[in-house]
Design a protein around this nucleic acid. Structure first.
Lengths: 337, 337
DNA sequence: CTGAAAGCGCTTACAG
DNA sequence: CTGAAAGCGCTTACAG
């Protein structure tokens, strides 16, 4: 690999000047800068990340701490993040929080502490107090995306409003007996910032406004299988609901599948709404609240670049939008099966 | 951040010895090693990645070059890779090949040349000659996964056998009029290692063995939308096939959707087979050839670690397996609609 | 605007 | 088995 001194020689300047000309930090005459650039291009010079970051303290690398919340959602957000970092010359190092608790500890105790990144994006995970403390001790700019901890500055969708919107759509169609399938809080977590809790709260608020006191709720984790079990119980029990609001699209798919197995026609016998904007939603005709995960990633990328002083900050709430497809319709009129 | 000299002072040894004790390179007495370890733990010392890699030339970081072939597949493979790298203390830096050609050039011309990684895993992309040359010039161990270039040592599924297996399953059920939906070769690519081309080849070989000379083929890209268009044409044309073998599960979902729209019952009127092992396949009752993408990622991780001398190599062909669900059945008997 | 020189925090021959 | 010292390839006060 060609080094900075070869470029300096070729351009007839010092390495100091090469460094300044190429990085844009410090003044260099336009003529010199041009000459250095040309020499660097001709030699195909690209600086060593290790040397530059050891000397400067900057890595031009952003870490992404991610759990495994459904491969689709995760990859879509990641794509959005990369779409912003790459054009600015920032690399992206992934810190994957897997299932293994020991591995997870290693990420917080070792991997993240190697000073490989200038900043961190933390994707929607439940973090315990120790993990929060360790993130803080890093002394790095951090942007959370849906992280349920007040300690981290985080981008969030207004999930209560999401829950309200989904429910309002069903209420407007005439449904009264609406059930919600969501995930209850992990032990020790606070409901204030927890996404499923907020969606549920929005659901209950909308139902309350419509005069329905204790609407039905079924617990399920964020998987198709979990939602299937919950849906089966709801739909085979006595007086089944006419509509189900599932806390995610993948959960909604589970509901659709169970409906099919039970011989219920959607939306004639049952309306279903999900949340996310999953890429197979159109295929299923699923009505959903799209939360634009790719855009969320892009926003998180923008936010960390702003925190690093690379770009200007631009705050705005994360958007979401009702997408009506064919899984929702007015409820069946009693006596007209 | 505490540095190596603080550990040295605390342990009463030189920084040389600390480095050796902690890295395991070079001899250190067991007593000393223990003392150093304890001191490092107490101080919470984690070495600077930049300093270590500048001095040693090693980064303990692996790059993953990835295209955007369906977020689900990509994320699942990535999870598999991370599951092997993390326990060995290796980090993972993602080089995302997006849609923008200029950004893509930047990855090959700059990002990858910053010496941030010890080795590279390249996920199934079509690379042009220039890109191949640039990868070679990096002088790094590289492991491909399904990369259609003979220049890169790559892990591959026997995709011809996959095509054969899917087709044989349908033939065994009694189907004769089977169509294949797949993707034709991008210009300039060779069919020898191209995955869709090989699947098609397997399809044609199996059909040929069954005495069917020119089986039907429809072109579509690897998306639901593409497959829908192709399926619509196949299924609305004169004498529609009794079975369709789609080159991926997501494409198969598109076929299922079109069948539903046309009022065809699966598997009574039409059998459908996909490839991948997509996580929603069970929901759809889709018969598929599972190629275990998570396991493929794990194997790629193992392979690059072996190439880096971290672990022993263990070669074996990538497995695949027919998973029969409810989307395939014998064809309808003529006259028995 | 430009350069000589120190220094970033490790690793590793080399010597003992 | 252990350590003093050079060096990895940049960046950046400091001086001019």
């Amino acid at each position: 690999m060609t080094g900075i001194d070869e470029v300096a020689r070729a351009a007839g300047v010092s390495t100091t000047t090469v460094s300044r000309a190429l990085s844009g930090r410090g003044r260099v005459s336009e003529r010199t800068r041009e000459r250095v650039r040309r020499a660097a291009d001709e030699l195909g010079y690209v600086g060593s990340a290790a040397a530059a970051s050891l000397a400067s303290g900057r890595t031009e690398n952003v870490g992404v701490v991610a759990p495994l919340r459904g491969p689709w959602f995760f990859a879509t957000v990641l794509d959005g993040i990369a779409s912003r970092l790459t054009p600015r010359g920032y690399d992206l190092t992934l810190y994957h929080l897997g299932d293994d608790p020991e591995q997870r500890r290693g990420v917080f105790e070792r991997s993240l502490r190697r000073q490989r990144v200038d900043g961190l994006i933390v994707l929607s995970v439940h973090l315990d107090d120790d993990e929060i403390a360790r993130l803080g001790a890093l002394g790095l700019p951090i942007v959370g995306l849906g992280v349920p901890r007040p300690e981290l500055p985080a981008l969030r969708v207004d999930d209560t409003a999401v829950g309200r919107l989904a429910t309002a759509h069903l209420l407007a169609l005439g449904h009264r007996d609406i059930a919600h399938i969501g995930q209850t809080l992990p032990p020790g977590a606070s409901p204030e910032l927890d996404i499923p809790s907020r969606r549920r709260r929005g659901f209950e608020a909308a139902m309350g406004d419509a005069g329905i006191a204790r609407p039905r709720f079924a617990e399920a984790d964020f998987t198709v299988a979990g939602a299937r079990a919950a849906a089966r119980e709801l739909l085979t029990g006595p007086d089944r609901p006419t509509a189900i609001f599932a806390a995610s699209d993948e959960m909604a798919y589970g509901v659709l599948a169970v409906a099919g197995e039970l011989g219920l026609s959607v939306p004639r016998d049952l309306s279903v709404v999900g949340v996310d904007g999953h890429d197979l939603g159109e295929l299923f005709g699923l009505t959903t609240i799209d939360q634009f995960p790719h855009g969320q990633g892009a926003r998180a990328g923008d936010a960390i670049l702003a925190a690093l002083g690379v770009t200007e900050a631009a705050a705005a709430p994360l958007p979401f939008e009702l997408v009506v497809r064919t899984s929702t319709a007015p409820p069946p009129r009693p006596g007209h099966p």
